[in-house]
Design a protein around this nucleic acid. Structure first.
Length: 673
RNA sequence: GUCCCCGUAGCGCAAUGGAUAGCGCGUUGGCCUCCGGAGCCAAAGGUUAGAGGUUCGAGUCCUCUCGGGGACGCCA
């Protein structure tokens, strides 16, 4: 069905054209906020009258005169300075409902007339790190944006821009190597890579001595892991990597620990002047052995990884295994959260690694990239720093390395040229807004994104704890997403136990998962994403108010009516099968019906501005309208001539809420709770 | 210093430039022999941080001030 707003817009706009003679007369139709003003209102007359220099009220009356709309509405009324108020005819309202009812898949909502190809970039976890609360908002907001646009009929390409290539990779590989050595050569040293041991060291002198031991051990292990030539890793590291994937479950926590250990060593060794021997290829392709500062070892390994080739196979293999391991962990969380991201959507930094030189070259060739203080920079127009001098967008560091700016440019180019994006949406927190502004400016200047391509940075605020400060553990650490979700489910479990103890264990578990996870997501979605928001289990799990459990309950209650029908001698299928017109009589029925046909508007508002709170607030209004109806109008006990209408209202309400929660927000609504 | 976001009822939050600024919690009062009371109805509670401006119309747009958060050359 064509959107009702669009129909009204067309009719009134046409009448305005006739009345006023202007070519472009937007009627500006919207749902009335106040029922006293009818169901829909047109606000366009005032602006048009201004333009045509006539009296707005008179013009409105003229428009109403010529307006042909009797098939939809009662006689329109002119109110205030020139509003046109419209009240739907019950017969038309009934037909709209029947149209929704008949369409299982789309509830009578037409897809967008001009579908676009939209890339949505969201989530973006980092390799060898656990997802934490900082990833939550990007992941779930991005996911619903993708779902909304897809439902509207656009071709959505999800992109998970994971951090899998930066300088941290040397650290990750080294971490793996430490795990390997701990297993093979230091089985009896319990705390080989225990960071707490370092953190808690009482005095500096002993700490230095301890670090010297670490280096000594490191050097000896490296030499020990040699078969054909020094440092080839053939004895231990290669076999370790070979069997790595079979052991992923146990290796994940070890990797996280070892990674932190390497990080801490890197930090700690700065300025200590310690060195370690390592190998590199010389000009004749022969290995030579050099000592390098210990703290630059991880960078050295990163370089080997990035060189690739035969000699650096162990680095490559280690990287692949860690990447796989991390993605497996992310996928578990995505699954738990009903996030529609899988490995096929992964296009991480490594994917663009071989395109970075080309990006810099192209920008140089266009004269956009210039050298400044040793680094290669673009100075997009309109950006100045604190001194008022042009602000650089650095695309290559003075040591030749590329940065995320370079990667983002390569990604943007790929998305437009290869993925054929008409529109790219980046979902990251607000702190990166300057970066994206500059990124877009450079892409425009380079001609990679012409003015038809829409580039959007969708931002969101910070998640705060109940104390109003950034969300942290009691000890001040970052909260792991896994733990947060587990706690939510745990809390939901006790609620389910309290309310419905007689359900089966397995069913209770499913409900707890749906309610707990749903609560976390819904709480985020129902807030305006620009504001910081206070994360509170108590609030999000509350049974009243605009929360997931309330919405899920509303759904369950309707399905409960359907379950009870047979017992009361009501055959729902038969009642609904022959329905040709509705008997909307009670005000509560009419209000609910009017709310139901506004579903398309809620989706449009949420999709257009990427604001899921428009959808949640609609769903909540709908649930409230249903509650009023439910209170006022018996369904199963209703007289035979009114019952089919009421059953249909029940069914449609359940379907709309189920669709909004399930298909668009990715929140399950269990049939019973 | 420049730029970005936020400031709305006691608290937590809404509000595509539209009419009388909404919702929840909390507070006060009312409703039920009834399909799941995890409900419904109502009341009280506001100078939308402040001052100007644009507009037929401003919580929303512009300028300034105050308060909170964030970003600003080789991290992502």
């Amino acid at each position: 069905m064509k959107s009702l707003i669009a129909i009204l817009e067309e009719r009134i706009s046409e009448a305005m054209r006739k009345a006023i003679g202007l070519a472009d007369c937007p009627a500006m139709v919207m749902v009335s906020k106040n029922p006293a003003f009818g169901d829909y209102q047109a606000n366009g007359v005032m602006a048009a009258a201004k333009q045509a220099k006539t009296n707005p009220r008179k013009l409105a009356e003229q428009v109403v005169e010529t307006l042909e709309i009797e098939d939809l509405c009662e006689k329109p009324e002119v109110a205030g300075p020139g509003f046109i108020n419209l009240r739907l005819k019950p017969a038309f309202l009934g037909n709209r409902l029947l149209g929704m009812f008949a369409d299982d898949r789309r509830l009578g909502i037409d897809p967008a007339p001009r579908p676009q190809t939209v890339v949505v970039d969201y989530s973006g976890p980092n390799i060898a790190k656990e997802m934490h609360v900082g990833h939550l908002r990007s992941t779930i907001i991005g996911d619903t944006i993708a779902r909304l646009l897809e439902f509207e009929g656009h071709t959505v390409i999800r992109q998970n821009h994971i951090g899998d290539w930066g300088t941290q990779f040397g650290k990750v590989i080294l971490a793996l190597w430490h795990i390997c050595m701990a297993e093979n050569l230091h089985k009896n040293e319990k705390s080989y890579y225990d960071i707490d041991l370092i953190k808690d060291f009482p005095d500096n002198q002993n700490l230095t001595a301890y670090f010297d031991q670490i280096i000594k051990r490191h050097q000896e292990d490296w030499l020990a892991d040699s078969k054909d030539i020094k440092g080839d890793g053939e004895l231990y590291f290669h076999p370790f990597l070979k069997e790595f994937s079979q052991r992923s479950e146990t290796l994940w926590p070890a990797l996280l620990k070892a990674y932190q250990y390497v990080n801490l060593l890197d930090e700690s060794f700065k300025g200590m002047n310690r060195t370690i021997e390592t190998r590199v290829k010389d000009g004749n392709n022969q290995f030579i052995y050099n000592t390098i500062p210990y703290e630059s070892l991880t960078r050295h390994i990163t370089v080997m990884l990035q060189h690739g080739g035969k000699d650096n196979k162990q680095e490559r293999k280690a990287w692949e295994e860690v990447k796989k391991l991390t993605l497996d962990e992310c996928n578990k969380i995505y699954k738990k959260l009903s996030i529609q991201l899988t490995d096929e959507h992964v296009r991480g930094e490594s994917f663009y690694a071989d395109k970075l030189a080309g990006v810099v070259e192209a920008l140089k060739a266009r004269g956009l990239a210039v050298e400044s203080e040793g680094a290669m920079c673009v100075f997009p127009e309109g950006f100045v720093n604190k001194e008022g001098t042009p602000l650089p967008f650095i695309i290559q560091k003075s040591d030749g390395a590329y940065l995320y700016a370079t990667t983002d440019l390569a990604a943007l180019r790929y998305r437009i040229q290869d993925l054929k994006a008409d529109r790219i949406i980046y979902v990251t927190d607000a702190r990166q807004s300057l970066h994206f502004k500059m990124l877009f400016a450079v892409a425009r200047a380079a001609g990679w994104a012409d003015e038809r391509i829409v580039l959007e940075h969708v931002t969101f605020g910070t998640m705060l704890g109940e104390d109003g400060r950034p969300f942290k553990t009691r000890e001040g650490g970052t909260v792991k997403l896994k733990d947060l979700l587990e706690e939510a489910v745990e809390k939901a479990r006790t609620v389910v136990e309290e309310k419905n103890a007689e359900l089966g264990a397995e069913q209770k578990e499913r409900i707890a998962a749906a309610v707990g996870i749903g609560a976390v997501k819904y709480a985020d979605y129902s807030n305006n994403r620009d504001s910081d928001y206070i994360f509170s289990f108590a609030k999000m799990l509350a049974m009243d108010g605009n929360t997931a459990p309330y919405m899920q309950y509303a759904c369950a209650r309707i399905r409960s009516i359907e379950r009870k029908a047979a017992g009361k001698g009501v055959d729902i299928e038969r009642d609904l099968a022959g329905i040709e017109q509705l008997a909307l009589g009670d005000p509560a029925e009419v209000d609910l019906a009017k709310k139901l046909i506004q579903y398309d508007q809620a989706i449009e508002a949420a999709a257009e501005q990427h604001r899921p709170n428009h959808l949640t607030s609609y769903l909540y209004d709908l649930a409230q309208a249903f509650s009023r109806f439910y209170n006022a109008c018996p369904v199963l006990q209703a007289e035979a001539d009114r019952r089919p209408t009421r059953l249909l209202l029940c069914d449609l309400t359940a379907r709309v809420i189920g669709h909004g929660l399930g298909d668009l927000l990715g929140i399950e609504s269990p049939p019973q709770m």
